[in-house]
């Protein structure tokens, strides 16, 4: 029941045409018919002289979850950070190749990076709420982007975002208490709400559960599954079970190379590459 209500409110927040489109295609959607949101072609990333990614090409399908798996240090986070240009903030990091969001070149010098990051939200490995109130944490993005014209609008955005992040019920009585006072899992959902509040198209999650206990992890996974209705999600995880549970497609990285990408069942049951096989059967990494 609550699930339906939440997706409904979420849907109301979107443009009507998109909403109808979703309703029509939503249930009958087939994996191989999905529209592509993000395309990456021959992406190479260097940290100074060291190359971290080699000719990575992948498509991120719309309104679904793609998981990036692989042993640690293989470049999953690096690739994720390319998609919203967070790598720009790292000294000495250089990105080559082509990444397009809805056909628009992300690395075009003319593009507005600030706007790009509003369209491609990010959730980090460790929950990182600002040392502000819960309300202010969620209101942060709408405020800097001027999304709300008055206080009521802002309150509505905050409440809907918290609801979409399945956090509202737990915090509705203490919206003005510090966000840092929440539990780890709640903090992570607050960070998700914060990202949702600017209505991004894509949400990037870099090991969002690695700092959480199993119960909090289960909640976040459930949430990711709900969010899929409205957002395109790319998630990095070191847990293969998690990838199997939440994603529709999975990409396996190894030593900076994208080894294999395909429907999640296929990657886990019938991988075509020996390295993928070894990894998913737990023989290395």
């Amino acid at each position: 029941m609550t699930h339906n209500q939440e997706t409904d409110t979420a849907a109301m927040n979107m443009s009507t045409s998109q909403f109808i489109e979703d309703q029509v295609t939503g249930s009958s959607r087939q994996l191989n018919e999905m529209k592509t949101r993000v395309t990456a072609r021959d992406v190479n990333v260097f940290y100074g002289a060291k190359q971290a990614l080699f000719d990575v090409s992948v498509n991120v399908p719309d309104k679904s979850v793609i998981a990036f798996i692989g042993p640690s240090g293989c470049g999953k986070s690096t690739f994720l950070r390319c998609l919203n240009r967070m790598n720009d903030t790292i000294e000495g990091c250089r990105v080559e190749g082509e990444i397009r969001l809805d056909g628009q070149d992300v690395y075009d010098p003319k593009i507005d990076v600030v706007e790009l990051r509003a369209r491609v939200g990010m959730v980090f490995q460790k929950p990182n709420p600002f040392p502000k109130s819960i309300f202010e944490n969620v209101a942060y993005g709408p405020k800097i982007h001027g999304l709300a014209s008055n206080k009521t609008d802002l309150e509505e955005i905050v409440v809907t975002s918290l609801k979409k992040a399945s956090l509202f019920e737990e915090v509705k009585d203490r919206l003005h208490e510090p966000g840092t006072g929440l539990s780890g899992g709640q903090q992570q959902r607050l960070c998700i709400a914060r990202a949702i509040a600017v209505s991004p198209e894509v949400i990037l999650m870099d090991e969002p559960c690695s700092a959480l206990d199993p119960i909090a992890t289960a909640k976040i996974e459930e949430l990711i599954d709900e969010l899929r209705a409205n957002f395109t999600i790319a998630i990095v995880t070191h847990s293969m079970q998690q990838a199997a549970r939440v994603s529709q497609r999975t990409a396996f990285f190894h030593l900076g190379v994208l080894v294999e990408e395909g429907p999640t069942e296929q990657i886990f049951t019938a991988p075509s590459d020996k390295r993928t096989q070894d990894y998913v059967t737990g023989r290395f990494g």
Binding site: N84, M86, T89, V114, E115, L116, R117, A118, G121, M122, F124, K126, N128, P129, F130, P131, K132, Y140, G141, I144, H145, C191, R194, A195, V198
Partner: peptide, 26 residues
């Protein structure tokens, strides 16, 4: 923490907005 700054940049805030709204208050 770098994570806090990244959180703000990741939401599309500019560097000076991040400094004004996150770094300095913290």
């Amino acid at each position: 923490p770098r994570a806090m700054i990244d959180g703000s940049i990741g939401l599309g805030a500019t560097r000076s907005e991040t400094i004004k709204r996150v770094v300095l208050p913290a």
